[in-house]
Amino acid sequence: MEIIFGLITISLIVAVFFLLAFVWAVRSRQYDDTYTPAVRMLFDDNEGPAEQQTP
């Protein structure tokens, strides 16, 4: 059953990796604005000149 010590340690290391990923996400301002990106992804950046003119 000694393997449990190893497994727990590994699982903790994996979990720490996710914690660091979260810290990175906060540091890179992903939590500063949780609304605008959801809207921004709806915009087409390569829109053609004519088609959206039709009412």
Binding site: D32, D33, T34, Y35, T36, V39, R40, L42, F43
Partner: peptide
């Protein structure tokens, strides 16, 4: 949402603008 669209496309109105990003909540 329209405000976000327009304000993030300022570069089309003024080529000197490189990028504009909106934080809507603030």
């Amino acid at each position: 949402a329209s405000c976000i669209y327009l304000l993030e496309h300022l570069y089309q109105l003024n080529p000197g603008v490189r990028e504009s990003r909106v934080n809507f909540l603030r």
